[in-house]
Structure formats: structure tokens, C-alpha cells
């Protein structure tokens, strides 16, 4: 039982990270209907930004409180990732908006290859380990919960609340939802569609960067190829929850995290990714709209 709960805690942590990335996928898909393949690499980029800032700060100020250090890392990662995603949208995706459906997908794949190789070229191909930032572990009823796990889950909850508020209660969120429903009509009603889409990319990148920072803090290592697998898993989460749905993305993320840690704990760690992908395939085949998505009705 304790073992089970321990795995639940681990799964929850991992799932929070996936959920944060998944929101970026689901928002972009919702608003312009494209799978932003490069989103996983934006997450990786965020992690690297946090890593470099960490090295800069620790080499200048010694003995800075960890909280402030983490906050600075997160802020730098968010800024950098947002700037990248904003630029990519403007340069690579916007010219293709409304054209051939495959073109943006191929561009996004190209962008993903570009980003991971850019980091490989500029930062080197090796793993980049950092010393543990947060190492306290609490023992609650025989279950060990690391402080970093608490931070990750708490942060996810806080960010989601803020995010939920923005999307549902502000005029920006209204503009996003309007653009999602009907881009042309939204433009006719005076919504700056380009700006709304840009902001969506910025927001998605911000969350991915937080996820990247958390990932770095949790595993203590960054590597250029880290964008793909977490990216695909986060996308799986978005699909699982019902693409286009924000709570769906988080639920999907948590589910993927739980499945992964429980599968590794009770079956075999080797096939944990197979389990994730199989679940993705099964969900899509039997319920393509995901858990919270609206079913698509075929119009004849």
C-alpha cells in the first residue's frame, strides 16, 4: 500500500510536468489547429536557459537562497522560451497560416529538428548535470515525499489557477476562445487575431519553460535531445484529455504520469513508453475525442 502511494506521488509529480507542457500543445492546436511539434523542444530550451542562468547566478552570487535562485531561473527560462516561441510563430508558422494543412506540420517538425540541433551545436551533445538544488525529503506515514515534488505539484496548481482565470475571465481569454471558434469572424469583430495567436504561443512557451525548469530541478540534468520524448508524452496527454481542452490536458498529463510510474513499478520499466504509446493508440481508436473533448460529428 505504501509502495503504491509512493508511486502515486511520483506519478503525480511527473504528470504535473507533462500537464504543463500539454497545455501549450492543446492551446496551439485549439487556436490554429496545428500540432506544434517544436513545443517539446521549447520545453528543452527552457530547461537549458534555466541551467545556464543557474550557472551564471551561482558563479556571481554565492549562497543565494534557493527560492530566489529558482525564481530567477524560472523567470529567465520563461522569457527566453517565450521569445523563441514568439519568433518561431512569426517567422515560420504565420506565413503558412491558412495554406496547405501539411505545410505547417512539416515546418514544425523542421523547427523541432532545428532547435534540438541548435542546442547540440552551441551547448554540446553531452548530458549537463547540476548539483541538487532542493534535497530535503519528508517522511509522511512511511512515504517519502521530496520537497521538490511538493514544489512541482504546488507550482502546477498555482499556474493552472492563474491560467484558468486568464482563459475564462479576461478579455484576452475571450479573444482566444473567439479566435478558436472562428478566426475570420473574430477578426471581423475587431479582435487582433495575429496578436491573440502570438500571445497563445507566448503563454504556451512560458508554461513549457516552467516545466523545463522543474524537470531540470527534479532530474538534475539537461540534454539537447530531451525535447522529443517528454514532448510526445505531453502531446499524448493533450490528446488523452481531449485536445483543445485545458483541464483535459492536465488530467491527461496526470494520467500519463501515473500510468508511467505505476507501470514501471508493477510491470517492467523497459516497456513503460510502450505502455504510454499503446494507451494513446487505444484512446484515439476508441474515443478519438479524448476524455473531455467534444466528439466530432461527420457532416454529410
Amino acid at each position: 500500500m505504501e509502495y503504491f502511494i509512493q508511486q502515486l506521488v511520483n506519478g503525480l509529480t511527473l504528470g504535473s510536468i507533462y500537464g504543463l507542457i500539454a497545455i501549450g500543445y492543446t492551446m496551439v492546436y485549439g487556436i490554429i489547429g496545428m500540432i506544434n511539434f517544436a513545443h517539446g523542444d521549447i520545453f528543452m530550451l527552457g530547461g537549458f536557459a534555466a541551467l545556464i542562468i543557474f550557472l551564471v547566478i551561482t558563479s556571481i552570487f554565492v549562497g543565494l537562497p534557493v527560492v530566489i535562485l529558482l525564481l530567477i531561473m524560472m523567470a529567465a527560462a520563461m522569457l527566453t522560451a517565450a521569445l523563441w516561441n514568439w519568433t518561431i510563430e512569426k517567422v515560420a508558422y504565420r506565413p503558412l497560416r491558412g495554406s496547405f494543412r501539411l505545410a505547417p506540420l512539416i515546418t514544425a517538425i523542421g523547427m523541432s529538428i532545428t532547435l534540438s540541433n541548435f542546442i547540440q551545436v552551441t551547448q554540446g551533445p553531452r548530458n549537463k548535470p547540476i548539483p541538487p538544488l532542493v534535497s530535503s525529503v519528508y517522511n509522511v506515514f512511511g512515504i517519502s515525499i521530496a520537497l521538490k515534488q511538493i514544489i512541482i505539484v504546488l507550482l502546477t496548481v498555482i499556474l493552472l489557477t492563474v491560467f484558468w482565470y486568464i482563459v475564462n475571465k479576461t478579455s484576452l481569454g475571450r479573444a482566444q476562445r473567439a479566435t478558436e471558434q472562428d478566426r475570420k469572424m473574430a477578426a471581423l469583430l475587431g479582435i487582433d487575431v495575429d496578436r491573440t495567436i502570438s500571445i497563445t504561443f507566448i503563454m504556451g512557451a512560458g508554461l513549457a519553460a516552467v516545466a523545463g525548469t522543474m524537470y531540470l530541478m527534479y532530474y538534475g540534468v539537461a540534454v539537447f535531445s530531451d525535447g522529443f520524448i517528454p514532448g510526445v508524452k505531453a502531446f499524448t496527454a493533450a490528446v488523452l484529455g481531449g485536445i483543445g481542452s485545458l483541464p483535459g490536458a492536465v488530467i491527461g498529463g496526470l494520467l500519463i504520469g501515473l500510468i508511467e510510474s505505476l507501470w514501471s513499478a508493477y510491470f517492467t520499466i523497459d516497456y513503460k513508453d510502450v505502455a504510454t504509446f499503446s494507451i494513446l493508440a487505444i484512446v484515439l481508436i476508441f474515443k478519438p475525442s479524448g476524455i473531455l473533448g467534444r466528439p466530432e460529428v461527420e457532416k454529410v
Binding site: 505545410a103 517538425i109 532545428t114 547540440q120
Partner: peptide, 21 residues
């Protein structure tokens, strides 16, 4: 050689933006 895939990725993006079809 190191720049092989970087250039490949960039070329994908540039060709698509230039000739979407």
C-alpha cells in the same frame, strides 16, 4: 558534419515557407 541536421531542419522550414506545396 555537426551542422548537418541543423541545416536540414532549417532547410525544411525555409523550403516550406517559400513553397508550401
Amino acid at each position: 558534419e555537426l551542422y548537418r541536421m541543423l541545416i536540414f531542419g532549417l532547410a525544411m522550414v525555409i523550403v516550406m515557407v517559400w513553397k508550401p506545396r
